[in-house]
Write a protein that binds this DNA or RNA. Structure first.
Length: 552
RNA sequence: GCGCCCAUAGCUCAAUUGGAUAGAGCAUUUGACUACGAAUCAAAAGGUUAGAGGUUCAACUCCUCUUGGGCGCGCCA
């Protein structure tokens, strides 16, 4: 949070400066880590932005600002200089870095957290795969991203609920039920063809086999119920292996089937609501959503002329239900192939009286699997799709989750099974986990010494002055920046990149600075730095759902 | 035809949302283990950010067009 402290200080100074210049509006300046060739801890573009507003030379403005800094901010900022077109470069005092390290050691895995009190309630809905088969690898990416977003928001103090929306009614359920029934009949010796558009997977046969082994007779079987039961069990096991846990499973039946005392479902009522409000209308015997009012390409059907509702009608009722449960913010994770639905759902949200920002839709691109340079085909109905389970069994949970989170959700992900399996430097998961193992090894070794000081209060942090040590502390503090950035962009991939960079800086520190030196004071303070590294590595990996082994 | 996303080093991808000389990993070349783990480090090489215009003190980032790719456009889910 060093950056935030600097920001607070600079904000005060800039506002004061603006006041003197008679400028009322705010200036949205940035504080950044300068490129490697620049010798400074942070840099700000404030002077350039102000100069533009008041039409003066940016370097002159910068000069006036650093004059104020040197008068008022000596507790944090060691020195400043002007560079380039008018950047102000800032050098941070060692005391400020030490203080940050102490905070990390004190707060441990709560570092960067905020009090949970008056924060928003957020609902993150993800995976939500139809219960028609095991999860495939695309669902896995959604699971990894959704779960990680939830963990990040939780760490930031939000009250977060993770929900799985279960489409357990409707057309595909009939197909599913019929698929199982066909397999059942075939196993019983009937010569019937299995329809080409039905679910081909072996798991369908397994369900039929179970029903036969339990001695169930054809007439007494509810194939839909039996199939959903077994498949849900499979999905729950897959998610369990992936260490993704849901707080709530929301059945579509709740809103589409369950009726109140007037015989109305939630879907009936929300359609009625829209109709009365004028956001839905009847045409050609169907009920239409006037989504063009809120920027959609065309209006959409809610209820077909044959009286059946569309999927969209359920979705309206479902999102209404979410808001009614008291969530201020909804986050939906969808595969990118659903992007065409964004406009209409955002329209619904606004018709329900909320702002379109109250619903955040994170689209993630598909995963393309590669094995031996050959792309692996993925189709949910072909029967030869790649299940999440098969990938998990092959490469392990940690690699799998890390790889899914390696890229921004928006970019397509190439998942190389052979690479993810490698326990070598080619594999970034191991590169990061190795840091924790190395640190742990040093801690273990340090216990053989009697001259090490353990009490943080008695440590002399001013001994940590080398470039490597300073870089490491600054990077630990950037954990918070990464949290904020991940929240802002709804994208956990910043953490995988952060961890790789942190590991890089740690390994450089390791080469240059021997921790267990003969100098007991120096060794003690460096050990505290190691502890800080472990706190941040473990917390960060935790946010990604990846473990931090003590040894590898 | 219309809409959304994308195009960055040989490959897979970043770039703190408009900042300084565009960065990592892999692959290639060269060096470093009698110090806490070499699953590591140091160094070299690799780029007209698809192309052309525009806005800006500053553009991979914003705007327009062109080219090439992915996806979506049903009273399907």
């Amino acid at each position: 949070m060093i950056k935030q402290n600097v920001a607070t200080v600079l904000n005060g100074i800039i506002n004061k400066y603006l006041e003197l210049e008679g400028i009322i509006e705010n200036v949205n300046f940035t504080i950044e880590v300068p490129p490697k060739n620049i010798d400074a801890d942070f840099a700000t573009n404030a002077a350039m932005l102000i100069a533009k507003k008041i039409k003066r030379n940016p370097r002159v403005v910068a000069q006036e600002i650093i004059a104020i800094i040197s008068k008022t901010s000596q507790n944090i900022i060691e020195k400043t200089e002007i560079a380039g077109a008018g950047f102000i470069n800032l050098h941070i005092k060692n005391d400020a870095l030490s203080a940050e390290l102490k905070t990390i050691l004190k707060e441990k895995n709560k570092y960067g957290s905020k009090a949970a009190n008056d924060k928003e309630k957020i609902l993150v809905e993800f995976v939500s795969a139809n219960p028609t088969g095991p999860l495939h690898i695309g669902h896995g990416r959604g699971a990894a991203i959704g779960d990680s977003i939830a963990r990040i928001l939780k760490h930031l103090g939000y009250s977060v609920i993770k929900e799985y929306y279960l489409n357990d009614v409707g057309n595909q359920m009939l197909v599913l039920a019929n698929s199982v029934e066909c397999r059942y009949r075939q196993l019983k010796g009937e010569k019937i063809d299995f329809p080409i558009d039905h679910y081909q997977g072996e798991y369908i046969v397994d369900i039929a086999k179970r029903l036969i082994s339990e001695g169930k007779k054809l007439e007494e079987i509810d194939f839909r119920k039996e199939a959903v039961k077994d498949i849900l069990k499979i999905i729950e096991e897959d998610l369990g292996d992936f260490e993704v846990e849901f707080d709530n499973w929301f059945s579509e039946g709740n809103i589409a089937v369950v009726k109140d005392k007037n015989g109305k479902t939630d879907v009936d009522k929300s359609c009625q609501y829209l109709l009365e409000k004028g956001d839905a209308y009847e045409k050609d015997d169907a009920l239409w959503l006037a989504s063009t009012k809120f920027g959609d390409d065309k209006d959409r059907v809610l209820k077909r002329s044959d009286g059946r509702y569309t999927y969209l009608a359920s979705d309206v009722a479902y999102h209404k239900n979410k808001f009614e449960r008291g969530f201020q913010k909804l986050i939906d994770l969808w595969g990118a192939d659903h992007h065409g639905y964004v406009a209409r759902i955002k329209a619904c949200v606004q018709m329900l009286g909320f702002s379109k920002e109250d619903l955040d839709i994170v689209l993630y691109q598909l995963v393309s699997l590669v094995r031996n340079g050959q792309p692996v085909a993925m189709s949910t109905r072909s029967g030869e799709f790649v299940t999440l389970k098969s990938v998990l069994d092959e490469v392990g949970k940690d690699s799998c989750r890390f790889f899914f989170l390696l890229r921004a959700p928006d970019s397509q992900l190439e998942f190389d099974l052979e690479l993810a399996k490698k326990q070598s430097s080619e594999n970034p998961v191991f590169y990061v986990q190795y840091v924790n193992a190395r640190c742990n090894s040093i801690l273990k070794e340090s216990r053989n010494r009697t001259d090490i000081v353990n009490d943080t209060e008695k440590i002399n942090f001013n001994l940590l002055t080398s470039k490597e040590e300073r870089d490491l502390i600054k990077k630990l503090s950037a954990f918070y920046d990464t949290l904020i950035l991940s929240e802002k962009t709804m994208s956990p991939h910043h953490f995988t990149l952060y961890l790789i960079e942190l590991a890089d800086i740690y390994h450089r520190f390791y080469e240059k600075c021997k921790v267990l030196t003969d100098d007991a004071n120096l060794a003690s303070s460096r050990l505290k730095l190691i502890e800080g590294v472990m706190v941040i590595i473990q917390t960060s990996l935790g946010l990604l759902g990846v473990s931090s082994p003590d040894k590898m």
